[in-house]
Design a protein around this nucleic acid. Structure first.
Lengths: 245, 245
DNA sequence: TAGTGGTCTAGACCACACA
DNA sequence: GTGTGGTCTAGACCACTAC
């Protein structure tokens, strides 16, 4: 990794230029998730900046959870493992608040066309081809939520049901390992709705019972939307938890 | 200048010591919300640390939204104005996503005893005296949510219904200005439930209709819980929005 | 012992606000 | 112009990891 940077003539701070340059290289897949970036002293020399400036740039990427520092070992490109899923992206917990890993059950994988909501959220034209996947998640042996996932076919070329079902880790890990798509940020919109008969059947509840719906849009490093996921949650024994600063 | 002399033996970084010291002074009300703290160079000299270390301490407090920097003017203790309410603490928006200020309507103010949930969340003993307040919030002229607020009587001594109703700004601003209680962080737990007949009446909907409930616990600078608020939301035209990193 | 990130210094200079 | 926060330097030394 050398220090070729485009230094804008406007007042952009040097550390931001370094940050953007590093980020673009990571987004381009120059260093894979789990691998270490070059040491700080080396990067500082390559970019011809002081160690303080270089560290400030890396601070920003650590803040965005794109990089992870480990003292004495190095700085690594963040990887989507089970730990990260539970900690940052899965917000459904039992009423007593103890987080546990969900068991995921595959229900359906098909090609479809984007409806209005999907097209709007994923910045596609209406009727664009998408993959439509349905999963059921259980916590403590009890079915708790149904996921309806929509992703752009062109962003995940050649994805198959087999590949989906046989993924070794989390869904976001599959996106990252197989397609170089790293989810770094999500937006979630929640409503209370009456359960449809189909969702009621899958969740083992009565049709019309109140359920929580979570509409999540997931964004990659370049802040492009990559996934729309509508989760329908039975909140009889579980709830959605958010900590807000 | 030997900074190591001021350093605790347990290896706590100097900037954390400075941060905690500053924070305690702010929590004690030494500088009021809206007022400026001393300039960085002055603070650095007072603490006998370099400007870089002092800035790192302030960075942390800015991150926690306890301080706000304004280039060329100074660094100020954060104040709970309408802007801050809308931006950080009010997460109910129309389906189209455009944020607007809620109109607040007073319904009830009374003394009560803490139920099990309130006592648990506010770290009180069951049956401890609390103020119980009910408000109705409207957006665009339409009633959207009912707030049930519980606060410890001992934390807000002498609070009256008149004072509550005649507050000039937001509720959190009242806590801050009149009682020195600054809310810096909240935890929210969401469920879908069926509207009670009373909530249905207040929201102008049918009893049993699905509504979103938000159980919010608010924490002060010392991370003590100061308020439990249960909001019951009609999500027919509005939704809860959260952005998660 | 060598190599990594983490802390800290003691400045210089820039950008912005205000009188 | 004066005073504020914002950026940047060129190091030194500490803490942790792995061999």
């Amino acid at each position: 990794m050398n220090g070729a940077m485009r230094r804008p003539l406007d007042g952009t701070p040097l550390y931001r230029v370094v940050e953007r340059t590093l980020m673009e290289r990571l987004a381009a897949g120059e260093i894979k998730p789990g691998q270490a970036i070059p040491p700080e002293r080396e990067l500082a020399a390559a970019f011809s900046v002081s160690i303080g400036t270089l560290r400030k740039a890396i601070d920003e990427l650590v803040e965005q959870r794109i990089l992870v520092r480990q003292q004495g070992k190095g700085t690594f490109v963040a990887s989507h493992d089970r730990e990260r899923l539970l900690f940052y992206f899965f917000h459904v917990v039992p009423h007593d608040g103890v987080k546990t890993y969900p068991q995921v059950e595959y229900i359906q994988f098909r090609r479809a066309v984007a409806d209005a909501e999907t097209a709007s959220r994923l910045h596609l034209s209406a009727g664009a081809p998408v993959f439509a996947i349905r999963n059921r998640l259980s916590l403590g042996g009890r079915p708790v939520l149904i996921d309806e996932i929509r992703i752009d076919v062109h962003r995940f070329p050649g994805l198959t049901a087999t590949q989906w079902k046989s993924r070794p880790s989390t869904i976001y890990n599959l996106y990252q390992e197989a397609f170089g798509v790293t989810v770094v940020r999500t937006e979630e919109r929640l409503r209370a709705e009456a359960a449809t008969s189909e969702h009621a059947r899958l969740l083992g509840i009565e049709p019309g019972q109140p359920v929580l719906t979570i509409r999540r849009t997931a964004f990659d490093m370049r802040d492009d939307p990559v996934e729309l996921r509508i989760s329908t949650v039975d909140t009889t024994h579980h709830e959605y938890f958010a900590e807000l600063l």
